Structures are given as structure tokens and as C-alpha cells.
Amino acid sequence: MAFEVITRSDITQVKWDKLVCGSPDGWVFSLWGWQELILAVPRWGLEDYSFGVMSAGQLIAVVPLQYNPSAAALMSSGWSGSGPILKAGISAKQRTSTLRYIVDHCERLARACGASKVIYAVSPVTQTSLCQSWGVNWFEMLGMRDTSRLSQVIDLSQTENQLWSNLSNLAKRKIKKSKKHGYYVERVNWLDHVEKYYEIHTQTYQRTGVVPHPKEYFAGIASNLANDGYSILFRALDSEGNTCAFHNMARFQEGAYYHTGCSTPTAAEAGGNYMLFWNAMLEAKKIGVRWFDAGWIFPHGASEKQKGLTHFKTRFGGQVHRSFFAELDLPPSDCNPLAGPPVPNPFTRMMEKLLGK
């Protein structure tokens, strides 16, 4: 197959998102609007290298791709995972050759921009990820290093009673406690709650010793994703009607993701964060979500924060899935704009010949 690269600026938003929404690789962080919002955060200083791949006059792939200076890496995407998005319906042979072309082109771009590595990250609830029955990271077959993580994923096709029975006893007690204290949850308009969200987000991060995200990040989520239902915001209120916690859920077709959240100390003590998570799960089920990604877990986490996150997320049932990551390290001597094309990976080339690719 003959390929041609075109920049993201040469593709309309409609064409970009049409390919993403029709692809088994598609995800929220692959959308045009996501690229726009992360590039608009001054503190991150991301540089856009996103591109499309044409073949026989048709757009067959789009690749969200940014250089992230804080990581000195070319990443897909520069903030949160996407990976290459290939057109639905192409053959396995076409898919392999297209991915090989994309990986090689990303390596050339990384060398040219001085990146130390290339990083791909893929949601565990894309159709492509869910179909990896043996857990094999397809990027490894393209010469990359597997750096995958673990995510807790909940199958919402079960009845509400079944989902409740899968909760840990502690989670059930926390939810009942918050109800007893008069806490309740509602879905709210993102744009109307950016200020309050950021206030509680800042308090939460400062309390846990982490630098808060830039406010522009959440304002971008509200303005670029929420109107089309790709980001849904829930809040928990106490018995006096005071907002005390938020749950920001990313949603794409049958997949959803616990994207970000924050709470006051009082809400956490009363179990409000458990009630909020449970209600977000039920709302996701109502709107047609099947796979709910609770996010990364750390069974061998060294920090107290990692241990706490793991305990919290695994108390809502579900199973452990692979969250696919892959990296290609570039030696410092190779990271310069004068470097030639990458040396083909001999193992990958051998496998492609054996498979007739």
C-alpha cells in the first residue's frame, strides 16, 4: 500500500471525528476537541504533531500526537491516552502495514523534534482493547517496549442488584452512611460548575500534596467535550445543599471512564465519594454504557496514595484489564533533526514476512 501523510490542519474536524467515531480504536481523547483543549493549556506547552494517513485517496487513519516538553516525549496524545486511530473495516493485513507506517513516521518526527522517546497509551475500554483476548500488546510486534498498566473495569450489563452485590461491604456501608446523613447526587451542567469544581479540585490536590491541574484544562473539558456528551459531571451535595464533591466521567459510545474527581474532607468522611461513584455507575448504565473504567490500580503501589486509589476503585466490583502502553526509547545521539529514517526492527520485519505482510 502507498501512504501519504497530511497534517491535522489539512483535515476538517468533521472528517477527523467521523473516522474516530467509526473506528474500533476510537476514544474520547482521540477526538478533535480533545486535541484543541490540551493544546490551549499554556502551562503544559504542548506542540502539535497530529497527522492523518491517506491511501488510495482516502483518509484511513488519524494520529493524535503532541510533544510534551515536561516528559521530553512525543506522545499520543500529549495528555491522556489515545494511540493511532484506524478506519473501521480495513483488513488485518492493511491494519498491520498502516500501523507499521505510523510507528515509523512517529519515530522520524520524534528524532526531528528532539524527543527522547515516543509513548502510546490506549484506553482499556476501546473495542480494540476489549478484543485482545490474550492481553497481547500489539505495539510490541511493532518493535516497541510494553509498559502497560492495570485498570479496574466494571461490566455494567449486569442488573443493578447484581452490581450492588459485587460492591465490597465497606463500599455498601459508606453509601448507606452518606444517604443516612442526607447526601444526594445529581448530574449538572459542566459550564455552570467550572468555578466550584476548580475550587474543590484545588483543595483536594493541596491536601494530598499534589500540584493542581491548570484551570484552563477543566474549562476546556466543559467547552469542548460536555456539549456533545463526551464529558459528564456529577456532584454530591450535603443535607444543607452544599456542593461537597464532583465526579467527572468521560464517555464514548459503550465505554466510560472515571476521569477526574475531587471532594471536601467532610464528604470523604461521610462516604459521599462512594455514593457519588456508585450513582455515576448507575447513570452510565442508564445512558447505554457497558464498560466502566474506574482507572488505574496499583497492586504493588509504593505510595500511600496509590494504595488508597487501588483500595477505593476495587471496592466497586469489576475485573482487572490491561491498559495498553508502549514506549520507544531514542538514544540521545539519535534525537536530532538531521537523523535519517529509523532502522527497521529485524524481528518485526521477519514476522511480517512470515505472515505475508
Rank of each mutant, 00 (worst) to 15 (best):
K180A: 11
Q158G: 08
H181W: 00
K215C: 07
Y183N: 12
K179N: 14
E199V: 10
L170G: 15
S178P: 06
K172A: 07
N224V: 09
L163F: 03
V194L: 00
K179R: 12
E195F: 01
G182D: 00
L167E: 05
T204D: 02
N161P: 01
R173E: 15
K172E: 03
S178C: 05
W190M: 09
V210L: 12
H193T: 04
V185C: 08
G220Q: 04
P214I: 01
T159I: 06
L225A: 10
G182A: 01
E160V: 15
L225V: 06
K179A: 09
G182Y: 00
T202H: 06
N169P: 02
P214G: 03
K179M: 09
L170N: 14
L225F: 03
Q162G: 13
A219M: 07
H181I: 00
G220S: 04
Y198E: 07
R207T: 11
E216L: 04
T204Y: 00
E216C: 05
N161S: 13
H181P: 11
Y184P: 10
Y197K: 01
F218H: 14
L225G: 14
Y217M: 14
E186R: 10
Y205F: 15
L167A: 12
L170M: 12
D192C: 10
Y205W: 07
T204W: 00
S157W: 02
N161A: 10
E186W: 01
I221S: 11
G220K: 04
N169V: 05
L170D: 15
W190A: 08
A226D: 05
L191R: 10
K172H: 05
Q158E: 09
E160C: 15
A171C: 07
Q203Y: 04
N161K: 09
V185S: 06
G220N: 01
S157R: 12
K176E: 10
Q206E: 13
F218N: 07
K177V: 01
L170F: 13
Y183K: 09
V188H: 05
I200C: 11
K174W: 02
Y184I: 06
N224L: 09
S165A: 03
Q203M: 06
H181E: 11
Y184D: 11
Y198V: 07
Y183P: 04
E160D: 14
W190T: 03
K176D: 13
V185M: 04
S157K: 13
L191I: 01
G182K: 03
Y183L: 09
K174M: 09
L191D: 12
H181C: 01
N166Y: 02
I221N: 13
N166H: 13
H213A: 10
N166F: 05
Q158N: 09
R207H: 08
Y205V: 01
P212Q: 04
S157E: 04
D192S: 15
E160R: 15
W164D: 11
K176N: 15
K176H: 13
S223D: 05
N169F: 02
K174A: 10
T208H: 12
E195M: 05
K172L: 03
H213Q: 13
L167Q: 08
H201A: 05
S157G: 14
Y198M: 08
T204L: 02
Y183G: 14
T208M: 07
